[in-house]
Design a protein around this nucleic acid. Sequence first.
DNA 1: GCTAATGTTATCGC
DNA 2: GGCGATAACATTAG
Length: 244
Amino acid sequence: MPEGPSIIILKEAVKEFKGQTVIDATCNNGAIDAGRLINQPITDFKSWGKHFLICFPEFTIRVHMMMFGSYRVNSHRDKPARLHLQFENGELNFYAAQLLMINEPLDDLYDWETDVMSGLWDSYKAIEKMKAEPDLLACDALMNQQMFSGVGNIIKNEVLFNTHIHPLSKVNAIPPKKLKEMTNEARRYSFDFLKWKKAGVLKRHWLAYNKKECPRNHVPFMVKDTGKSQRKSFYCELCQTLYR
DNA sequence: GCTAATGTTATCGC
DNA sequence: GGCGATAACATTAG
């Protein structure tokens, strides 16, 4: 479920509850004190990268889907929800999500300019942050939530393939124009992801992620655990340049 | 039944 | 203390 665009879909799916008052709330693992939510109005839903934010007047609940999180709007599963919110006009349930109570103003916590889905996204900032890290690899840069908030492993692979950049390229060795292209593609592709995910056709548009061979020249993709987080990269040694 | 997967953080050992 | 490696959490499609 995760990656930034999926959180945008979630935000749209729950907008009927904006302004609604929580009439009952439960949390099945004690991560947050659900009692604090009761009789509180939801002032807004926001997102930053993969973080989904439920805003109340005095605090915010941060919901992170991690790998396996899911949600239901106006329905529920058999098992108890990690977070259950009941309203006059319906219910909202989260499962296997990581919850966090935030008591500070969100603007103190989040830099909205690093979120690839945000209207405030600043590509220049991402480039400056990348340049500041000497041995940073392209695969790690794209996965770095402080640089490309919302980008996950699928978007990473598609962006590197689309821009012909080898995942193990050193960011500082990538020519400036090319690095700019990669940075802009991270945002541009995220909106393709959003459009295709909404239409239920995301998988069929994958060119690299989980694919066996390069669609450009039909040689097998290299599949390697790359970078700090050792996440899978699918890449073509013929058409993706290794800058080093 | 087993495996791997759109993710992140805490902890361990050097 | 800093670093990387490892564990932990948790779900389900294939």
